[in-house]
Design a protein around this nucleic acid. Structure first.
Length: 281
DNA sequence: TCCGGCCTGCTC
DNA sequence: GAGCAGGCCGGA
């Protein structure tokens, strides 16, 4: 589930669930979510959570007494709240709160990562230092986007997903933002005009805002295991008619990932300015 | 720059 | 039973 909006929702849920309540016990199972001595250090996390921040797809936990935790949900990780004694499949780690609730880190595929480090070192970690700007935290204008992504020689969508250029977009939201901006995923970044960048920056904001709205609340609305309906505009809609122009949505592979595109709304050739409207925010 | 690997579950 | 999946890393 986790791209920027999903991780941000996870953060907000955790803040709500935990609030001022103390973590009375932290437990970690022996999985590759933890490396080396991390498991033991995880078990030492206790007390209040003083802050819970997000950078890109990472969550930065600051506990009292200077302890910290860097968490990444990977592909299938998520935090869920359960009552004490209630089993949770694929639970890999747990925070027991003083009110008897338990926050589980559930991760069937074990692609998530938990790295306990001193809170003062969280922001200095290479994983965080190397991130590009976070559209939600740092803002994102057309020129800023052009500066971050425009120098890439990879395909536009691949460049958008490069966390070192822009932090937070993954396969789904990159495809959705490009559709909203009317830009083909295989465009080369150096062919975009300032207008294109501006439209794309707005589309990224709109895509993130949509993701946040869709998933507000305790239970994720989409991308849940099994089949909630597809709320996206092009992602996962190969062969279906485009919601704007009715021509069939296509899919192809870019850098090993499936990309969805409406070839009519997102022509590969740069358009003459003003000829056709983008599908809209 | 691409490709497989990491894992398991779900859909076709 | 094969193929596919939201992320990321490392090797060729």
């Amino acid at each position: 589930m986790p791209e920027l909006p999903e991780v941000e929702i996870a953060r907000r849920n955790l803040v709500r669930w935990i609030g001022p309540r103390r973590v009375v016990k932290a437990e970690a199972d022996d999985t590759r979510v933890f490396r080396g001595a991390e498991r033991a250090r995880f078990s030492a996390l206790k007390g209040r959570v003083e802050s819970l921040e997000r950078r890109g797809k990472y969550l930065l936990w600051t506990f009292e007494a200077g302890r910290g935790l860097l968490a990444h949900l990977g592909m299938t990780g998520k935090f869920v709240r359960r009552q004490k004694g209630q089993p949770e499949p694929y639970s890999r780690a747990r925070f027991h709160l003083e009110d008897g609730t338990v926050i589980h880190f559930r991760d069937p595929r074990l692609f998530g990562r938990m790295e306990p480090v001193p809170a003062s070192e969280l922001r200095a970690l290479e994983a965080i230092q190397s991130l590009g700007r976070d559209p939600l935290e740092d803002g994102l204008t057309g020129p800023q986007l052009a500066e971050a992504v425009g120098t890439s020689r990879q395909d536009l969508k691949v460049a958008l997903m490069d966390q070192g250029r822009l932090a937070g977009l993954g396969n789904i939201h990159a495809a959705e933002a490009l559709f909203r901006a009317g830009l083909h995923p295989a465009r080369k970044p150096d062919t975009l005009t300032p207008e294109d960048w501006k439209r794309l920056a707005r589309a990224i904001h709109a895509t993130i805002a949509f993701g946040l709205e869709e998933q507000e609340g305790e239970e994720p609305v989409y991308l849940e295991d099994g089949g909630a309906e597809n709320v996206f505009r092009v992602y996962g809609r190969a062969g279906q008619p485009c919601q704007v122009c009715q021509s069939p949505v296509e899919s192809f592979t870019q850098a090993g990932r499936t990309t969805h595109v409406c070839p009519e709304c997102q022509p590969l050739k740069a358009q003459r300015p003003g000829r056709k409207r983008a599908p809209g925010r």
